[in-house]
Amino acid sequence: MNVETLTRPDNTAEKKTQEVVFPFPEEAAQEKLSVEDVPVIMEIKNIDKSYSGSSKVLKDISFDIRKGEVLSIIGPSGAGKSTLLRIINRMIEPNSGVIRFQDKDTLNMKGKALRHMRTDIGMIFQHYNLVDRLSVFENVLHGRLGYKSSLQGIFSMYSEAEKEKAVEIISELGISEQIYSRCDELSGGQKQRVGIARALIQDPKIILCDEPIASLDPNSSRIIMEYLRRISREKDITIIVNLHQLDVAKQYSDRIIGLNDGSIVFNDVPEAITAESINHIYGSNLEELIVE
């Protein structure tokens, strides 16, 4: 009796979270086919990167990215995870190598072609990187600027269709009450959802996530990871995510890439990860790590 009254508020809180976490239609969430049946959308071959003067950050990186998969990149700090992620949308230029995305070589792109390529790749960040003096709505619409000319962009000339799409995405992510709030009034979890909305409205093929949950509490982290996985399942968008949390990577990804000192030392499904491979990735034994 006493226990029941104590647990009831918890139950309602849990239910509310569930509503926030699962706003997408349930029937759309289906299990995936086996990895080999899914088409490759990006091929990364022999990428090398070194910053001027220092030793190599990335050494001969090659891997394929498949449509709609959740791909985690794990590894110790300084292994080159962030650099690798930014090379995918060319925020950082590699020294050599080839990247083929939608049958085009992205490393030769310039100007308009480069901007167009970036509209196909969304990105979210550890520190959210929202313009916090602008509203949630304005920040989400920033995701459309890649499709605009200079003048259209400067005067915020968004079409009604784009605005309606933004409203739809914002309500899917459960932040419609805050649509006109300034972003500095939001909590961390809400800010990250605005970040996801800004990436989604780009209509991307891939979303890159640079440590998306490193600044969030465990519950917000879970909500964000659930969203990312559902986006990959229901919208068939590939999610590439840098993570520090091994157990999160195991729980949510279709495939894990382990990076150590600029080289790929592991590239397989999460079930294949063993104590030995963890030793390879982090350079220390499983018992010595805090995996939670």
């Binding site: 925020m91 901007r115 970036r118 960040f125 890649g146 499709y147 970040g195 800004r198």
Partner: peptide
């Protein structure tokens, strides 16, 4: 980071 975020959406200098 805020500038990087907008560059990543394909925004140009004036945006």
């Amino acid at each position: 980071g805020k500038i990087e975020a907008l560059r990543a959406t394909g925004s140009n200098y004036f945006h």
